[in-house]
C-alpha cells in the first residue's frame, strides 16, 4: 500500500503521556482477571467495614480516576 508514513498514535510520545498510560494500564490490570479472581476474591480482611474484594476494587477505581484527573491537570 502506498500510504503516507506517520508515527503511530498507539504509543504516547511525551513523558507525562507515558506515565499516565503505564499507571492507568497497571491499575486497570489489577481490576481484571486473573488478579480479581485469584488475589482479590475474598471477603476478609474487611477494610473500613467493607468486604475485601469490594474495598480493594473501589480503591483501584478511585486511583484510576485520579490518574485521569492528573493527566488532565498535566495537559496530556
Amino acid at each position: 500500500m502506498d500510504e503516507p508514513r506517520r508515527r503511530t498514535h498507539f504509543l504516547p510520545r511525551t513523558r507525562d503521556g507515558r506515565i499516565a498510560v503505564v499507571a492507568f494500564v497497571t491499575l486497570f490490570s489489577l481490576a481484571m482477571p486473573p488478579v480479581t479472581h485469584a488475589l482479590f476474591n475474598r471477603a476478609e480482611p474487611w477494610i473500613l467495614g467493607l468486604p475485601f474484594i469490594f474495598a480493594v476494587l473501589l480503591a483501584v477505581y478511585v486511583v484510576s480516576i485520579g490518574v485521569l484527573i492528573w493527566a488532565f491537570r498535566r495537559g496530556v
Binding site: F24, I53, Y61, L68
Partner: peptide
C-alpha cells in the same frame, strides 16, 4: 452477588475512552 462490582471497570474505561 458482588461480581457486578465489575461495573467499576467499564465505567472507568468509559472515562479513559472519552479522554
Amino acid at each position: 452477588g458482588v461480581g457486578f462490582w465489575a461495573a467499576g471497570t467499564w465505567t472507568v474505561l468509559v472515562g479513559a475512552i472519552t479522554y
